[in-house]
Design a protein around this nucleic acid. Structure first.
Lengths: 328, 328
DNA sequence: CTATTTTATGTCAACGTTTACCGATTCTCG
DNA sequence: CGAGAATCGGTAAACGTTGACATAAAATAG
């Protein structure tokens, strides 16, 4: 920029005062012409922020990851902040390792999906280093940091109540990964619904999966091998529910004729499955958006991280074609 | 770090010479104790690199995105580089806008998935600003930048030949988004296979989708409404193939009894569908890994961006349960 | 035991911005 | 027309690290 100091360029581009309209105009035109952009490293150095937001998650289904990302990105859209993805497996067994990874990544803030959002050791580390965090659907220590939740137990209760109200009593249950607190919350809801219906839960019909299709398939086969066979399967996510449908079909059973199947999450697979899955909409996108929104508000000093930071999002039971009254 | 200059700390942590073992040890212990990490902005400023790699994609299926990400992240695992996700829709109509977004993001390099990898205007911009890029499955200007491809036409040929060899002749075809060059490449392969089998392509049985489930469903319904009905559907990705299965079922047709369906990509839905989809494995993960690997090699000066940068990855026809000989 | 090399530690400047401050010019109003 | 205010442009310093260079201390050779 001939004849203009860096300072003037800076002022012109940042719409700061003390620059004449003529110069500002000239500088902006030249910048656009050359596709000039201020060096972010230098800006970061002086502003003491990187304008990077991290997102950590653990081996979940693709559609969940994409919903998370899109939700967060929707809020970041203005391009001021950028989203860094940091998947990390087996947090439960090594929370400090994830902590070091996050601290080294030079982030301004971090969004924690389950199960990382429920690791007190990790939260401790982040706090010790003043790295603000947003927690998406945590299940413990709900007063720490920015918290976005849905009522997992109520959602579990709704879907279980749906099957019970259709008349099912022999209901198989496929749990998710026990290290995800969501698994416990949903089960709690199932118990309430069974209790309300005066129906006991048969513990032999409760098997543990890990939210993946393959393990879900094996679990479903195990349930369907019992006799008398369950008339319905309640899976703790849609991938495992889709696996249950496949297991039923492989045994020659019709869904929902011979077996009703309900999932959880309203993920893409719940719509691409046939029949489409009865499930519970977990508003992942909105929750991620909200968490990002409040995290950024905190970073920009528009809101404090402490205080009434919890926010609940509504779930919704989606009754689709995979559930029907039992045959007999 | 009492009694030690920043310079010494720097040398100690970077395993640079001119530091006594004792001091190095002491510094490293103190750093570990305090979870001290050098300021990345300052390092970036002096090194003139951000250690950020971007990944751009456009509204594809979740499992494709996740495969891309995981592939790239697998290569970045040492944590030296970080991955920034920058989804961007409708590149074809505004390539410069994406260019500006990428240039402003302060990246060291960028991985371009389709269709961004096929936008000459975008590549021009990136080159003008010396931003290295890796292109994942481009279909034009294959001599520009780092290129990772698979032979899309050969893959299309394989899957079409599979249906033809089963005896199908009335084969409906659901194309993907025409702005994705992959769509053309796959169709080219279909044509070759039909030509080899001496079977003409009935253009009334060719409909255009956009790689999404919903549009795929409508396209499939359109095909199945024709009479005589096609005995097989060749969809250009798995989501649309899953939609074709659903459309068939909704019409009371059995798959593969009354209708064979083949997809493309070997995405998660091809395994969670029932019956599991015959498809072509597109080694997205490996390609993303490879692209990231070579991009980083270029950034580290270990390899030049120019030169024999193209690399082909092998596809593989996966015959599963959704295809069988026609009924009549 | 001195001369020379090797090793260890420290100082200065630079990376590209922005904040804080200062002087010069132009404008406003009495 | 002159005093004060507002506006415009510029300079110095700082952000935290590292490369280049200088100096001091220790090791080695003759």
């Amino acid at each position: 920029m001939a004849g203009v100091t860096p300072k003037t360029v800076s002022r012109a581009l940042n719409d700061a005062p003390h620059v004449s309209k003529a110069v500002r105009q000239k500088v902006k035109e030249a910048a656009a012409e050359l596709d000039y952009h201020p060096n972010l490293a230098a800006q970061s150095l002086i502003a003491r922020r990187s304008y990077l937001i991290g997102l950590t998650y653990e081996r979940p289904s693709p559609s969940y990851v994409v919903d998370l990302q899109n939700g967060a990105l929707g809020r970041l859209e203005d391009g001021r902040y950028r989203l860094v993805v940091l998947p990390f497996n087996h947090v439960a067994s090594r929370p400090e390792e994830l902590g070091r990874l996050l601290l080294r990544a030079g982030l301004d803030g971090i969004l924690l999906a389950p199960p990382a959002c429920d690791q007190p050791a990790l939260l401790d580390m982040l706090e010790r280093h003043n790295l603000p965090y947003g927690r998406i659907t945590p299940h413990s220590e709900l007063d720490r940091g920015i918290v976005v939740t849905m009522d997992e137990a109520a959602a579990g209760q709704d879907v279980a109540a749906h099957l019970l109200s259709l008349g099912h009593r022999r209901i198989g249950i496929i749990l998710g990964d026990p290290s995800h607190a969501a698994s416990l919350g949903r089960m709690e809801g199932y118990r309430r619904a069974f209790g309300d219906a005066g129906a006991p839960i048969d513990e032999r019909l409760v098997v543990t999966g890990d939210f993946t299709y393959d393990v879900g398939y094996r679990a479903a086969r195990e349930l369907l091998a019992q006799s008398p066979r369950p008339t319905a399967i309640l899976a703790q996510n849609d991938d495992m529910a889709a696996a249950a449908i496949a297991a039923a079909r492989d045994l020659g059973l019709a869904v929902p004729g011979d077996l009703s199947v309900a999932g959880f999450d309203n993920s893409e697979v719940s719509r691409t499955a046939w029949p489409q899955l009865t499930t519970v909409n977990q508003p992942v996108r909105q929750m991620a958006w909200d968490a990002a929104d409040r995290l950024i508000a905190a970073l920009d000093g528009k809101s404090d991280v402490s205080g009434s930071q919890r926010r609940d999002h509504a779930h919704e039971l989606l009754v689709r074609a995979s559930t029907a009254p039992p045959a007999n």
